[in-house]
Computed example of a mutant assay.
Amino acid sequence: MNRLFLGWMILVLLLWCGPALAQDTVCVQCHGGLDGRLGAPVGQWEKSIHAANGISCHDCHGGDPSDFAMAMSPERGFIGVPGYEEVPAFCGRCHLGVREDYEKSAHGEALANGGPNCVICHGNHEVVKASIDLINEQDCTRCHDYERAAEVKGVIAETEAKLQSLDLSVASLHRVGIDVERLSGELFSTRNQFRRLFHTVNVEKLQQQRSAFDSDLAEIGAQVGEIENQLSQRKLIGGIIVVLLVLAGCVALLIRQTYHSEEEAGE
């Protein structure tokens, strides 16, 4: 009896925990149980934008995420930790446009002399979501004064605010069942192209190209506004119909009551 109960308990635990465990690569399972510098990356990665988007250890470092024995095998494409100057090329395998702009920037040109690479601003395993908040006095002044960075932030702030506002509007439309796939795609593309420019750290270039992005965002905003107006009209029409139905019901009830009253008076 005890064995039967134990067997059922094990089966329940496997069914309950199995899906969660299946999501972990062998990298996470192994390093997650380690202390110090070998275990720290797992906790950092779990808080990252990479983890939120399903990008795991092997997507950057290579190797076989399903086989403990081959997880760090060069035969399975394991790369390991890149050197300091190799980081832009390492990250640039996915972030192609950003890498291109970075390499032409003051940051990229200073890389060989200790200039900042990607992880200096974005973190390594705890990669933070790209936003205007990454440009801040506390972080930027670790390497240089804040004046130039403040100029860059000032140029992009208004456009970034428009992006965030449109993000909220499109998300709101999605929540009420509107098909926003095309709008989301346009906004995603515009956002990525605009944020790619951040890496040039070139105030003049940002000023020159910002108007084109503002124009694109205005067009997307007009489409969002049109959909919102249509929704408002539908709500208004729906409200009027409800009011008319209620009034019709009230009139019908009054007629019925009057009819019954007349019948009772006739009797």
Rank of each mutant, 00 (worst) to 15 (best):
G7D: 13
G7N: 10
M9W: 11
L15C: 14
L21C: 11
Q23W: 09
D24Y: 09
C27D: 14
G33N: 05
G36R: 02
A40W: 10
S48W: 03
I49L: 10
A52W: 02
G54R: 06
G54D: 09
C57Q: 07
M72S: 10
S73L: 00
P74Q: 02
R76Q: 12
G77F: 11
G77I: 12
F78Y: 15
V81Q: 13
R93N: 09
C94L: 11
G97T: 03
A106R: 12
G108W: 03
E109F: 03
A112V: 09
A112R: 13
G114M: 12
E126P: 04
E126Q: 13
K129R: 14
S131F: 07
L134I: 11
N136T: 08
D139N: 11
T141R: 07
C143V: 15
C143Q: 12
H144T: 10
H144G: 05
V152R: 03
E158W: 00
A161C: 04
S165Y: 05
D167I: 02
D167P: 00
D167L: 05
L168P: 00
S169A: 15
H174A: 15
E181N: 13
G185D: 04
G185W: 06
E186P: 00
E186H: 10
L187H: 08
F188N: 12
F194Q: 01
R195M: 14
L197N: 07
F198W: 11
T200N: 07
T200H: 08
V201A: 06
L206D: 10
Q208N: 13
Q209F: 03
F213C: 02
S215T: 13
D216G: 00
L217P: 02
E219W: 10
E219P: 00
V224S: 05
Q230E: 09
S232V: 08
R234F: 01
I240T: 02
I240K: 00
I241F: 04
V242L: 12
A252W: 06
I255V: 12
Q257S: 11
H260I: 05
S261R: 12
E262N: 06
E262L: 15
E264S: 09
E267K: 13
